[in-house]
């Protein structure tokens, strides 16, 4: 799945995980079978991932998200696109994101 990810795709957070923000820290809690060791493990993102994750609305493509963030943070688009693709790759391989288009 990771090799097929491209900027034209649209993603939404899977219903098999719950995203919680606790004291400023973003925690991803698996709630369905087959994602991680549910009894003992939690997933957390770095600061970049946290910013990107909130953009997944099932409507915007990864390119749109990258462009938004590039403007919002006045950062080079190519750099942001690399971060978005990297982050999506990590989430998608854990089935935490679902492609909707």
């Amino acid at each position: 799945m990771a090799s097929k990810i491209n900027l034209n795709q649209v993603y939404v957070v899977s219903e098999d995980v719950v995203v919680r923000e606790i004291e400023g820290e973003l925690i991803i809690v698996p709630i369905a079978a087959g994602i991680g060791d549910m009894e003992a493990e939690l997933y957390t993102t770095n600061e970049i991932g946290k910013i990107i994750l909130y953009k997944f609305d099932g409507k915007q493509s990864l390119a749109d998200i990258a462009e938004d963030l590039s403007v919002e943070f006045a950062a080079p688009l190519a750099e942001i696109e690399r971060d978005v693709l990297g982050f999506v790759t990590e989430l998608a391989k854990r089935k935490m994101l679902i492609m909707v288009n």
Binding site: I28, A40, E41, Y43, T45, G49
Partner: peptide, 10 residues
């Protein structure tokens, strides 16, 4: 870059 970490709750 590592975007996601998984750790034991403790």
């Amino acid at each position: 870059m590592v975007y996601i970490q998984h750790k034991k709750i403790n």
